[in-house]
């Protein structure tokens, strides 16, 4: 099968590549770009370990061919924040012990960002419901739910501050 040229904007860097059509976005990220923070936990699109953001919306990168992302923006866990500059969600997962083995964590964090994007002040019930596409076998979700609530609060506060700064 012939390779298809694509340019995907990955974590802010336009990345040209030739890909086999059947290559999934997650394989492209992991195997071609060594962005191994995005994980694969299933082959039926259920577990959410592969969650990334595509043009600002969370998607399962195992259920999307890399060719389909041509010309689009992809943000992965590596792009959302860094050790020196943690995203509030990353910080909250750390603070609240929202991870154990860490395998589901990148997908959880990317899915959390989606939950907060859709509703900056989600209730516990809503967070639990919206996590339906992300499995964690270690934490019983307890601290993940806490982490998302607390990250949302921090982000609201930051948003309010930023808003205020803009008003001034």
């Amino acid at each position: 099968m012939s390779l298809v040229p694509v340019t995907i904007n990955i974590n802010g860097t336009p990345t040209p590549a030739q890909v086999e059509p059947r290559m999934l976005l997650v394989q492209f990220l992991r195997d071609e770009l060594e962005l191994t923070g995005t994980h694969v936990g299933c082959d039926t699109s259920q577990c959410g370990a592969c969650t990334v953001s595509l043009n600002g919306e969370a998607v399962k990168s195992c259920t999307l061919f890399a060719v389909q992302a041509d010309g689009m923006d992809v943000q992965t866990i590596e792009g959302i924040g860094s050790m020196d500059d943690l995203h509030p969600i990353q910080a909250a997962f750390w603070e609240q012990h929202g991870l154990q083995c860490g395998f589901c964590t990148p997908g959880m964090i990317m899915a959390s960002a989606e939950i907060i994007r859709r509703n900056p002040d989600p209730s516990e019930e809503e967070i639990r419901e919206q996590l339906g596409g992300n499995f964690c076998r270690c934490t019983g979700y307890h601290n993940i739910v806490k982490a998302i609530s607390s990250a949302a609060a921090v982000m609201r506060e930051k948003g309010a501050e930023a808003g205020q700064a803009a008003d001034d």
Binding site: L35, T36, G37, T38, H39, T76, I77, E78, G81, S82, M83, L86, Q90, F93, W94, E95, H97, L99, G102, F103, T105, P106, I109
Partner: peptide, 16 residues
């Protein structure tokens, strides 16, 4: 104590 191993996991630097 907050976990020492977490920074690598939350930033996608875990090494599986």
């Amino acid at each position: 104590v907050k976990r020492v191993e977490d920074p690598r996991f939350i930033t996608g630097q875990g090494h599986y």
